[in-house]
């Protein structure tokens, strides 16, 4: 066990964990930030996606010891009041079905919009590699376009 100081959602949080513990489980089990989801454990499905210094990252394969001083943003910190343009677009278009993968989808989409404020369909295809078995992809694509529009007319 070692002590780590992590920057999570704008706050410094202190945790004790084995150094090989993936950030995902530190978030979920140590910090009770359960919005970040477990889906595969091998960086494939993207349910565990968090924002690490502006990059979308699969937290299920990132050991806590490798996080360092980088800033972590989880779904709980995407916005203060749940009103990020993506969250609003998701609600407006009623994107989710079971809802399980959506926090990962939103975190992947939010990092996409940081680097590419008005993405094309092709850029969305490249950035959004998360899995959703319910088949919400068509609405996710529309919601990203809608959120981009909201952001760019702010």
């Amino acid at each position: 066990m070692a002590k780590y100081s992590l920057s999570i959602n704008g706050k410094i949080m202190s945790v004790e964990a084995d150094d090989d513990t993936p950030l995902l489980w530190v978030l979920r089990d140590n910090l009770n930030l359960v919005g970040t989801k477990f889906g595969c454990g091998v960086a494939q499905c993207g349910a565990c996606t968090v924002d690490l210094d502006g990059e979308a990252l699969r937290s299920c394969v990132l050991p806590v010891s490798a996080v360092g001083k980088r800033k972590v943003v989880t779904i709980e910190g995407l916005s203060e009041d749940g009103d990020h343009p993506l969250q609003k677009a998701w609600e407006e278009l009623d994107v989710s079905q079971c809802g399980y993968c959506q926090s990962g989808q939103l975190m992947a989409a939010s990092t996409l919009l940081k680097s590419t404020p008005d993405p094309t369909d092709q850029q969305i295809d490249e950035a959004m590699t998360n899995i959703c078995r319910c088949g919400t992809q068509v609405r996710i694509r529309k919601a990203i376009h809608l959120a981009a529009k909201k952001l760019n007319t702010k």
């Binding site: 779904i75 749940g82 969250q87 009623d94 989710s96 809802g99 399980y100 926090s103």
Partner: peptide, 15 residues
């Protein structure tokens, strides 16, 4: 709209 959509997009413990 789905009754849980706001909880879903804000990562609430639903599952």
């Amino acid at each position: 709209t789905d009754v849980d959509v706001h909880s879903i997009v804000t990562g609430k413990p639903l599952f």
